[in-house]
Design a protein around this nucleic acid. Sequence first.
DNA 1: CCGGGATTAAAACAATCGTTTAATGGTAGG
DNA 2: CCTACCATTAAACGATTGTTTTAATCCCGG
Lengths: 232, 232
Amino acid sequence: MTSLIDSTKDRILAAAEELFARTGVARTSLRAITALARVNLAAVNYHFGSKEGLVEEVYRRRLEPLNRARLANLEQLQRRRRKPSLEEILEAFMSPVASLARDPAQGGPTVMRLLGQTHAEAEAPYKSYFAGEYKRVLDRYHAALCRVLPEIPPADVRWRLQFLVGALTYPVAERQLVELVSGESMSPDNVSQVVHRLLPFVTAGFRAPVSHAKPRRRRPPARATTPRKRQE
Amino acid sequence: MTSLIDSTKDRILAAAEELFARTGVARTSLRAITALARVNLAAVNYHFGSKEGLVEEVYRRRLEPLNRARLANLEQLQRRRRKPSLEEILEAFMSPVASLARDPAQGGPTVMRLLGQTHAEAEAPYKSYFAGEYKRVLDRYHAALCRVLPEIPPADVRWRLQFLVGALTYPVAERQLVELVSGESMSPDNVSQVVHRLLPFVTAGFRAPVSHAKPRRRRPPARATTPRKRQE
DNA sequence: CCGGGATTAAAACAATCGTTTAATGGTAGG
DNA sequence: CCTACCATTAAACGATTGTTTTAATCCCGG
């Protein structure tokens, strides 16, 4: 049976996840993985077919619960009687990230570096594979956000959703660089702190009026730079 | 002298930049670079010592002007009589990115993908090399931002600066994924559009009051996490 | 015209990569 | 006990990697 607690397959997955998160997929050899997992080299090709199959499985087992949690959070929010607020929607999107980092059974802090690497891996074949369900998640949130932000054009809501993903991903993925620059240490607990600190930032960002000044058009920019309070 | 317009060194740099931006450093072989540049394979080791030397030079020649422009913009802003506004500071930080993308002599749209890859390359040795001057830039901006945001604790300003970098980097680096998800095309002109759309977002984000609630005892809006067990 | 450092060229280097093959261990069912 | 099947092991495969070597070529000052 494959459901033993410490099976070869699981040890390979754990070792691969650790190394992928640390040095990326391309720089991680199968020999490094099997050495860390203390299994035979050929076990990877036996259980996963190829390195690409292993990569796909490593990411799938983390991204799938994340997407599912995000969708479930949003649906639960919309099943309520009251109309969800902007802040609630944004928290529903970001909180599963912190939950994953908190739970060692779901990867713990390691999975966060892995998620950062997900966006980093260029031209990954598995990327287009997961882009489908990821797009579905973003589409749902886009619709929900447009509903609570009627004064923001949907295209701008789309962009701001991308900004949110970037702001959420970068400090987690670039843990080393952030630590080096900011001096602060990013312990696993701090990952939820990132979400917590990011929430008011993006909430205000989504509510901001869109700038209507085109780079082409030459409107007098002196008035445009003066801060106008347009929040409700 | 080696400063001829179409020297071997320049062609190697251009080809390496193109391929690094497209598929990352680890997945790009020297043979692919020299084939694209139509130079001999050994020319790389002759002119740059090693592949790592080439990588370092490729990034240095783009990151150095970017850091310099950001510092120059901030200094020019502070030399004025009037106290700079928050929006002006943020635009001083972000606008050099759009300038680089607009100018083909400075890399054009390719350099943007390269910058995205910069943060993506995990455990890069050249990273710590450039982290020094990058930290200097961030420190200057952090001080300037704290001055116009006295009500925000400096630690939060530091975090929000990281959020800004993430929101700025991600849509540019993940061009393919963003296009796939949002449907919009990211032409070189659109890079400056990203900066333009991001400015009001982050301006409002920096002004947002910090959340004083503790992450421990926070009212959960919807907790659908821990969706399933791993083992069957 | 010549000579010599700088540059380019072709070829081979050792090392590492992902993958495959063949042999072995171990266990459940007949 | 044997067979069939799954899992694991050791060993080698061919291909590709970055790098080095060696020779040929260029280019310019004398």
